[in-house]
Simulated scan of single mutants.
Amino acid sequence: MNPTGLWSSPALRWIAAGMVVVNGFFPAVWILFTSLKSEAELVQKPITWWPAKPMLDNYLRAFTDQPLLTYLKNSLLVACGATALSLVVAAFAAYAIARLNLKRRQLILTCIVASSMFPLVTLLVPIFETMRALGWLNTYIALILPYVVLNMPVCTLVLVSFFQSIPRDLENAAMIDGCTRMGALWRVVVPLAAPGVFTAGILAFVNSWDEFLLALSLNSSPAVRTLPVGIALYQGEFTFPWPIISAALIVAIVPVAILIALFQERVVGGLTQGGLKG
């Protein structure tokens, strides 16, 4: 049987799409159901899928047992700051690679990809020592700057493919009209590459929002603690209040879900166009 003809079957395509949806949404749905259960219902057998008596007390306790609003604010500040700075720096890097006559351009791209392959744990000690020497431990900047470095490879690669697809004549026309090269970048190239900018921004935001290891190591003060680290503190030495932890996780998922819902078309278009252009 021809494999191409097999996979062109509508039934198989629906099955494959269903598997992707279930794999992506089932954990979030299960966490949501868990957040609406009591601890007694959670451990009873047989397992109940839907909460017998949905309750919102776990959400109240999630905000009262730990300063969840503070953690949420800190994560928003860090993720938004890291995303904005990542896009600015990545735009400069991507424009230089896409437009300037750089020697060994492919080698530069290879080095960018290679830099993203280092395990974060191997970078932890140098980053910690650098932040301590600068006196930046327990500050927002201690997380924002490392996140910018970690986001740079993927943001740069996404933007390079979009910048390369934009005709040079548009920039030349803008510079003839009086724009500098920098002005042409921000007034012509970046707006035309908006799907790629949104895609890179979403990826940078999610990476910064979810990061745990650096947030745990660099910021120990409750005043600047981010959401992933704060959620880990709900568990005690011998207790794991899963309904309360699940409620806090739902709170952590909501901002990312809203962001993706608002920019869904741009992100999907950016990923598709980037794949075709790359």
Results as ranks from 00 to 15, higher is better:
Pro228Val: 10
Ala247Met: 10
Gln235Tyr: 06
Ile260Gln: 04
Ile258Trp: 05
Val229Gly: 05
Val254Gly: 06
Gly236Trp: 13
Asn219Met: 07
Ala252Val: 07
Phe263Tyr: 12
Ser221Trp: 13
Tyr234Cys: 02
Gln235Asn: 13
Ile258Val: 15
Leu227Gly: 03
Gln235His: 13
Ala248Tyr: 06
Phe240Lys: 03
Val254Tyr: 04
Ile253Val: 14
Thr226Trp: 08
Gly230Ala: 04
Ala223Asp: 14
Ser221Cys: 09
Ile245Arg: 08
Ile258His: 00
Leu262Cys: 15
Ile260Asn: 01
Val224Pro: 03
Pro241Asp: 11
Val256Gln: 10
Ile231His: 01
Phe263Gln: 02
Val256Met: 11
Ala223Ile: 05
Ile253Glu: 10
Val256Ala: 04
Pro243Lys: 04
Pro228Ile: 12
Phe240Cys: 06
Ser221Ile: 06
Val254Ser: 11
Leu227Ser: 04
Thr239Val: 15
Pro243Ala: 08
Ser220Ala: 13
Ser220His: 08
Leu262Pro: 00
Ala248Trp: 04
Leu262Val: 15
Ile231Gln: 01
Ile250Trp: 01
Ser221Arg: 14
Thr226Tyr: 09
Leu259Thr: 10
Gly236Asp: 12
Leu233Ile: 06
Leu259Trp: 03
Val229Leu: 09
Thr226His: 05
Ala223Met: 02
Pro222Cys: 10
Asn219Lys: 05
Pro222Leu: 12
Ile245Glu: 02
Ala247Glu: 05
Pro228Ala: 13
Leu233Asn: 07
Arg225Trp: 05
Pro228Asp: 08
Leu249Met: 13
Thr226Gly: 01
Arg225Gln: 15
Arg225Met: 15
Ala223Thr: 10
Thr226Pro: 03
Phe240Tyr: 15
Ala252Gln: 09
Phe263Asp: 00
Pro241His: 01
Pro255His: 12
Pro228His: 08
Ile231Lys: 00
Ala261Trp: 09
Val224Gln: 07
Asn219Ala: 14
Leu227Tyr: 04
Pro255Phe: 12
Pro241Met: 13
Ile244His: 00
Pro255Lys: 11
Pro241Glu: 12
Leu249Gly: 02
Ile250Leu: 13
Ile245Phe: 08
Pro228Thr: 02
Ser220Asp: 07
Tyr234Lys: 02
Ile245Cys: 10
Val224Ser: 01
Ala248Leu: 04
